[in-house]
Design a protein around this nucleic acid. Structure first.
Lengths: 232, 232
DNA sequence: CGGACTTTTGAAGTAATTCAAGGGGAGTGG
DNA sequence: CCACTCCCCTTGAATTACTTCAAAAGTCCG
């Protein structure tokens, strides 16, 4: 019966949405479960792209690191989302790493299993197309922001995006549900932790956000949106 | 017989690679041809995502423009490449514009026709997955460069990438085959035309590149690569 | 040959990084 | 339970890479 719950969960993911139940059962049987603790590496940059995961619970961070150790956060992944696109798209190796931010529970498949699945069921391949299309859209927007906006606006956009995809309504405002350091925000916004810290302090003074150690709460979303949209 | 040539051409594109000949013929029959002159808008940002094109000849530029008129160049598209991903991925509207840089010859399909094709032939859907995966990889790398590198390196990377995908070997070096202004390079590198101009002038002095009005030739690729890789 | 566009170059200004130092919380181990 | 240590965060001051402002010189095209 836990399997039954799994099947239902799979049917709601972006990857397997719309698949008939008996197919979902086959998919579920071909999968393996895996748990990771906060800080563990789920996929290593440069490793052979041999596995695809779906997040069941917890939060992952997809990063890319340069030769000289500088890191960029590509995105955070929450429940229902897919880690390891390279394995879907037939890439040789993973272009970035995926790290567990929380304790995580994942379900995984081999790249070959998923690719066979796509070849046999166009519907699943189309789900992958949609999912990649959505990611591409996202990242295109971030590229534009990074190119054209000043730091404060970029940080505002970054936080608003995170609040959107991983925000919980509380009495104090919208809280981002996973631990998020100034350094993390810097690596998403293309700046330094110092600038993020200064910016958040200024916002805190204006009551727009409330922050703690690796915690961010957006107290006044409209004001933050205003900052995100105001011209440079 | 022109149709026959078309069918062969289609079989070599990233979108229809591997499709059987009779399917290619059907695809070809469902297509329409269209020509654009340099400067024409092929797809308008915000319009309904109702068309997909393949470039037969010429060069396109995919851009994204902000409310306040600032523009970013997402990528250039050459023969065999696909314009209008949004229509493939089931997006509502085009997130950016596509402009003809040259005089262009395109082949197009309606979004519904292509989506039906993907649903009926998993192989084509998988081609789309690969193509989007490759784009995603590309843009991820650019995001990282934009976040972590200084302007000179970014410009170097931009030019090297263009030389790679649209370079022609000549006695003077690798020439980028389409007209490319300082402004264009700025919009790809996340800087201003002034900085690009200064940087190219400096490189020209060292014999690394040779430039003209909307022309760029990489005279010494190894030196440019060295600049692209040197730490900040 | 006029006019529009592209490019160059200098000078001034500034946003953000880098450098530097210290403070504070959370967890660990005695 | 307290002290110790490791992170994480903050804040000032100095520096700089890049933009912005401004003006002029080329270059192409009709």
């Amino acid at each position: 019966m836990e399997d039954q719950a799994d099947v239902e969960m799979l049917g709601r993911t972006e990857l397997f949405r719309g698949a008939p139940v008996d197919l979902l059962r086959d998919i579920q049987r071909a999968a393996f479960r895996k748990r990771f603790s906060a800080g563990d590496t789920v996929l290593q940059q440069g490793d052979a792209a041999a596995t695809v995961y779906i997040v069941v619970a917890g939060r992952l961070r997809a990063t890319q690191t340069t030769l000289d150790g500088q890191q960029v956060i590509i995105r955070y992944l929450g429940p229902g989302e897919v880690a390891g696109y390279a394995a879907l798209a037939g890439g040789e190796t993973f272009p970035g790493a995926v790290i567990a931010v929380d304790d995580c529970h994942l379900i995984g498949w081999s790249a070959t299993a998923i690719q066979e699945l796509m070849a046999r069921h166009a519907g699943i391949a189309i789900n992958v197309v949609k999912l990649l299309g959505a990611r591409y859209l996202d990242i295109q927007v971030r590229l534009r922001e990074l190119s054209t906006e000043k730091v404060e606006r970029r940080i505002a956009h970054t936080i608003l995006r995170l609040a959107q995809q991983a925000g919980r309504r509380t009495v104090r405002g919208i809280e981002i549900v996973f631990p998020l350091s100034r350094q993390d925000l810097a690596e998403m916004s293309g700046t330094t932790l110092h600038t993020v810290s200064r910016t958040l302090s200024a916002w805190e003074e204006r009551g727009i956000v409330a922050c703690g150690r690796r915690r961010v709460v957006v107290a006044k979303p409209p004001l933050l949106e205003a900052i995100a949209e105001e011209p440079d």
